[in-house]
């Protein structure tokens, strides 16, 4: 199933939750919608599911208009952020619900329903919980039951809203791997929403970065990390050093100091220089673009994080390998191995 979204706009009062969104999702993809809260990612997901309606724009599944159908007729599996399990039903009945409410003509008989639920519970490896109630389950178990329930209706598309948001860190890591292998197994076009970049980069084939109701970048995990398209993406994904610079005809200046960096096609004027912390290479003073003094050093596993005050006045944090120890008071030069300059 392919999904195509064209020029979607959705306003809540004067707040634009979606401000002209275009997106194409290929068959069998596992796509992440990544962005801070309020970026519109959940609204987009709910509109695709038919749980919300846009003010304007189009949504189509395999080329046919999805907005002509309600949530009930879209055959979309939706996993809610807080799972929305039916609390008065057992796990078994929760998973069976979608099969039991089908019109009599197409409804499976009881034995077939039982077999199908059993199969799904096996798939999520929780068949031993069939008779429990949702309140008796852990967060991770509820999450997997919610997924099994959504899969019961053999959805054409699987949508997950912050699937790991309410779980603690350890369970979250386990479930990420599990979700990726499950997707590999069932191969249904899937979209999940997250505000956690690590989650998006680790699980998805493709990542859509959103901010303020607009799509900032669409690309593979490597792509959005290594080649951020906008200042927002660079700042949001990975940890970046940001320095205010002045660009004049391709030359870059930080305060009074001319940096031996090239601005490429960036227009002249006030701009911002983005460098990943680990992309700042340490050398002797005067050897690089910047000079500074080490203020403070802490060790983080394989790297040492140094606070460096540049001679221009700014203070930055860099991550350097531990092979060459930095000490407080060291004077060093810094060369950005990779950097981007964005106007504004």
């Amino acid at each position: 199933m392919t999904i195509e979204v064209r020029n979607l706009v959705k306003k809540f009062g004067s707040f634009a939750a979606l401000d002209g969104v275009d997106l194409k999702v290929d068959n069998g993809e596992l796509l992440a919608l990544l962005g801070p809260s309020g970026s519109g990612k959940t609204t987009l997901l709910r509109i695709i599911a038919g749980l919300d309606w846009p003010d304007s724009g189009e949504v189509s599944f395999n080329g046919e208009d999805a907005l002509a159908r309600g949530a009930r007729e879209r055959h979309v599996g939706f996993v809610f952020q807080h799972y929305a399990l039916f609390r008065h039903m057992t796990v078994f009945e929760n998973v069976a619900f979608g099969l039991r409410v089908q019109p009599r003509a197409v409804r499976k008989d009881e034995a077939a329903i039982r077999a199908r639920v059993k199969e799904l519970l096996d798939l999520v490896q929780l068949d031993w919980l069939a008779d429990r109630y949702p309140s008796q389950l852990s967060g991770g178990q509820r999450q997997r039951i919610a997924l099994a329930r959504a899969l019961a209706i053999e959805p054409r598309i699987l949508l997950l809203d912050e699937p790991f948001g309410a779980l603690d860190a350890k369970v979250r890591k386990e479930l990420r791997k599990w979700l990726r292998s499950l997707h590999h197994e069932i191969n249904v076009t899937s979209i999940f929403v997250t505000h956690d970049q690590e989650e998006a980069l680790e699980v998805a084939n493709r990542v859509v970065v959103m901010d303020k109701g607009r799509i900032e970048q669409i690309g593979s995990p490597d792509d959005v990390y290594d080649n951020p398209a906008t200042a927002f993406v660079h700042g949001f994904i990975g940890e970046s050093i940001v320095l205010p610079v002045e660009v004049t005809g391709g030359a870059v200046r930080l305060g009074e100091r001319q940096l031996n960096l090239t601005a490429g096609a960036t227009a002249s004027g006030a701009s911002r220089l983005f460098v990943r912390r680990h992309d700042m290479l340490v050398g002797p003073p005067g050897s690089g673009a910047f000079d500074g003094a080490v203020q403070h050093v802490r060790n983080f596993g394989p790297v040492q994080r140094a606070e460096v005050s540049l001679f221009g006045g700014e203070t930055i944090e860099i991550d350097a390998p531990r092979d060459k120890e930095l000490r407080q008071g060291d004077r060093i030069g810094l060369v950005p191995r990779r950097y981007r300059i964005f106007a504004g």
């Binding site: 749980l51 009930r72 055959h75 609390r87 409410v101 329930r149 209706i153």
Partner: peptide
């Protein structure tokens, strides 16, 4: 409304 939304997205009618 989450449980109701879940039911609708699983194909239940309004009365169901």
């Amino acid at each position: 409304t989450q449980e109701e939304e879940a039911a609708i997205s699983l194909g239940a009618s309004g009365l169901q």
